[in-house]
Structures are given as C-alpha cells and as structure tokens.
Simulated assay, not measured.
Amino acid sequence: MSMPDDVALLARKGIIAHHMRTDRDVSQLFTRLTKGVVFDFYGNYYLNHLCLALEAYYQNRLHRWVAWLRHNHFSNPWLVVAALAGVTVLFCTIAQTVLTVESYVNPK
C-alpha cells in the first residue's frame, strides 16, 4: 500500500475501507506506520508454519499450472462447458475406436 493506486484497488475490492480524504493520505499513513519496521522472514515467529505452507503450495508446479489454466482459459463459464464437451467427445471417440478394433480382432 505504498502507492495510492494500491489503496484504490484494495478499497474497490472491499478489503479496506477508509474515511480519509484521499487514497494518497491512506498510502502515506501506512508508509509512516511501517517505517523502520524490520521483518525477519527466517526467524521464529507465530506465522512461520503458515508462510512455509503457502510457499510450498505456490511452488507446486501443478497448482501454478491449474491457476494459469483457470486465469487464461476458463475465466468464462461457457469455455468450461465447451472444454467438457470436447473431452467427452474425445473420450467417446477413443472408446469407439478401441471397441471397433477389439471386435475386429476377436469376432464372436
């Protein structure tokens, strides 16, 4: 929240609510509040286990891939429906091919 744009975004998303005149005033307030504060990321603090768990989750390649897929390709519900329909058609085509080859190899 070092920039007024950060404050505006957080206020627009409903994360913070302020009654100051401008977003710049809020930004300056938070800058003054955190001046001189040093946070030891590798120390022993009460949220250390949570930070480590979040970092492990973020570093997981599958989670990053799923997030990228959701953000870039499945942001619209119709795209999800179309992808499911495509997967269903692909599965049915593969099943039909396998059954056709099996009936040809092993006629009854």
Rank of each mutant, 00 (worst) to 15 (best):
M1Q: 06
M1A: 06
S2E: 12
S2W: 02
S2Y: 04
D5A: 14
D6H: 09
D6K: 01
D6G: 02
D6Q: 09
V7P: 05
V7Q: 07
A11I: 01
K13I: 01
H18A: 06
M20T: 04
R24I: 01
V26M: 09
Q28K: 08
L29R: 10
F30P: 00
F30M: 10
T31H: 03
T31F: 01
R32G: 02
K35S: 13
K35F: 05
G36T: 04
G36C: 09
V37Y: 06
V38M: 08
F39W: 09
D40M: 02
D40Y: 03
F41L: 12
G43F: 01
Y45V: 00
Y46A: 12
Y46S: 15
L47A: 13
L52I: 00
L52Y: 01
A53L: 12
E55M: 11
Y58I: 03
Q59A: 07
N60C: 11
N60L: 05
H63W: 05
V66C: 08
V66M: 13
A67P: 00
R70D: 15
N72D: 12
S75G: 15
N76H: 06
P77Q: 06
V80E: 13
V81H: 06
V81G: 00
A82L: 11
A83T: 02
L84Y: 05
G86L: 02
T88V: 03
T88G: 06
V89R: 14
V89S: 12
L90T: 06
L90N: 12
F91D: 11
T93D: 10
T93G: 12
T93I: 04
I94P: 02
A95E: 15
A95K: 14
T97D: 14
V98H: 06
L99C: 12
V101Y: 07
Y104P: 00
Y104E: 14
N106C: 11
K108I: 04
